[in-house]
Amino acid sequence: MIKKTEVLIVCFTTLVTYIIIVFLNNIFARYSIYLSLDSLYLLFPGLYMLFWPGYLIIILIALTVNASIPLPYGTLFVLYSLGYFIIRQFKTRFRKENWGHVMFIAFSINSIIMLIIAVIVDHGSFFTESYWFRFLTDLSLSSLVLIITAPLILELQKLFLKFSGLK
């Protein structure tokens, strides 16, 4: 019962995070800026949950996000799974309460996911300067927002669990 509640709360907060990111991108679109903050969805399930409940949330969020973007369906599932797997390795090697560590993990995984997407969806612009320039600016801005928000999102999710009476 406790597990089910935990999964539901984390799933809900992850979906809320996704909606906030889309909302931010709606605002930044007028400046041609796009924030890709995929690793935010993976942090809490990866660092604080057991393998299977965490993975279930990752599967759901990957399928939800992938449904509304023109990437081959299942691509984000594989990428998020890879990110989740990397976080699981960091889980026993890093201090979860250290914000610097959390920021580093979030930054690394986000960069890997963005780079793989950039290679997959190049539309023939792989060897053009403007494509990689745009990619690097998007990556830099996303990383900046990510390292600021990653610990906050984690704290928010922990707060939700605390309010629900779960440890």
Partner: peptide, 25 residues
């Protein structure tokens, strides 16, 4: 586990993937 689940997803027929995509959308 991740490789196995990814392989299973790759094996899924296209109509099922389309159905899944539309449902999640």
């Amino acid at each position: 586990i991740i490789l196995f689940v990814s392989f299973l997803l790759w094996l899924l027929p296209t109509f099922f993937k389309s159905f899944l995509r539309v449902s999640f959308f």
